[in-house]
Structures are given as structure tokens and as C-alpha cells.
Write a protein that binds this DNA or RNA. Structure first.
Lengths: 112, 112
DNA sequence: CTAATAGTTTCCATTTCTGTTAAATATTAA
DNA sequence: TTAATATTTAACAGAAATGGAAACTATTAG
């Protein structure tokens, strides 16, 4: 399988968990601290920490430290993986409408 | 959680498996028989059957019988779920570029 | 130096997901 | 009718993901 396809699969796997998708929903508004994410999503810190790790490994988010207090970690969305996913969806749409055209052509000359 | 969000989660969960995503890749070209999918993807019939069930339950594909031999089941893609996913990605993009604008504005007047 | 804070990592039990093999169902062919 | 075909369902074992609790690390505050 191509590397691009594998990346897509990892992106989809990371997004497939409701908590993680919720995190992405929050991060697309603005970057947030790990603890803030845990509070808003209402799950225990260690659990959030592990979900964030999964998201990091998929490339969907990145972490950096607060510039004044380096205990706090700030998570932000990375645009690449979701952009790739969108490309795949657009390809699907294109192939889909080609199917419709073919079907239409087929129905218009039903000389069986 | 909203019904729309739950549907998105089910769509993502269905797409998160490499075999199932491969099936979607094949179906976007044209509808295919269950057996054909199993052969092309190179997995056993029963396994393919269950993956197809998962895809069906997520709304990504639908099944109908061949008009001349109703033993064979033909699977085709349904456009709705992926269209919804695309909408979500576009929302993400929009919020993302809003973040960039805010950041830029912030940097241009650094009167701290 | 000591305590408090922010998060992460480890360990474990439980649930869920995979894939295999065998049996079942439905439909067509002989 | 009987046999063959296309596919699904059931039963089961192993793998992987999930979540909780406790321990650990790093950094800042007192």
C-alpha cells in the first residue's frame, strides 16, 4: 500500500474515537492546554494524555510548551492530515459523478 | 452529543479500517459484487461479508441484488456520509484560517 | 529545600475488534 | 430433486483498544 494511503488510514483511525474527535473540534477554534481539554471533554487527565499522544502520532496535532510556564503543554491542530483527507473525499466525489454520467449515458441509449 | 456528530463518528469508525477503506476505494469507481470485492482485496468471503455489514450500518454503502441472479449482491457507495464528512473538514479549514488571521493581527500590533 | 502543579507513563482488568473455520440460507442449474 | 453457487451468520480464539488507579517526571512557587 502506498505511503499516502497509510497516512490516510492513520488519520482516520485517530479521528475514529469520539473523544479524540471532540478534541479536534475544540482545537480547531484555538490551541488549548492539555488540562483544559481534559476538563472540557470531561475525562480524567491520564486518559486525555493518552488520547493526545495518539493524535500527536497521527500527525493531527502538535504540542509545545507555554512560553512562561513550561509545565503546561499547549496543543494545536496541524493542517496537513485533514487536508489530505479532504483531497481523498474530493477524488471520491469526482469518481462518483463520473459514475452518474456513465449511468445516464447508458440509460439514454438502451439498445439491448 | 448531536445526532450529526454521532453519524460523523460512525462514518469515521467505518472508514478507519484499511480493508474497509480499500473497499470504498474500489466502489467509488463502480458498484461491485461482494465476491469480487473479496477477491480483489484478497480476504476471505466471511470476513468481507462482515466488513460490508459494518459499512452498510454506517450508511456508507448500500446493497442490492443482481436483477438476473438474486444470489449475487451488488454493493454501491452512498454519497451522504462522505459529503457530511467533507462539510466537517471544510468547517475545520474555515476555523483554521480564522485562527491564522487572528494570529497575524496579534503579531502586527505587539503593544504588550 | 519542600510542597504544589501540570502532565505523562505504567500496570491491569475489561471490552471490543479481527480473522478463521464450520454451518446455514437462499437461489439457480442440472 | 439434487447439486452447485453466492453470500451470510455463528462460534471461537487471539489481538488490540479503552479506561481507571497509582506511580513518576519536570517545573515553578514558597
Amino acid at each position: 500500500m502506498s505511503a499516502a494511503a497509510e497516512n490516510l488510514d492513520r488519520t482516520l483511525a485517530a479521528l475514529a474515537d469520539p473523544y479524540r474527535r471532540r478534541v479536534v473540534d475544540l482545537l480547531r477554534e484555538r490551541p488549548r492546554r492539555a488540562g483544559e481539554l481534559a476538563e472540557v471533554v470531561q475525562i480524567a487527565f491520564p486518559l486525555m494524555s493518552r488520547h493526545l499522544k495518539t493524535l500527536r502520532e497521527s500527525g493531527l496535532v502538535e504540542e509545545d510548551r507555554d512560553e512562561f510556564d513550561s509545565r503546561v503543554r499547549i496543543y494545536r491542530l496541524r493542517p496537513g492530515p485533514m487536508a489530505d483527507l479532504k483531497v481523498w473525499l474530493e477524488e471520491t466525489e469526482a469518481l462518483w459523478s463520473r459514475q452518474l454520467l456513465a449511468l445516464k449515458a447508458h440509460l439514454q441509449k438502451p439498445r439491448k
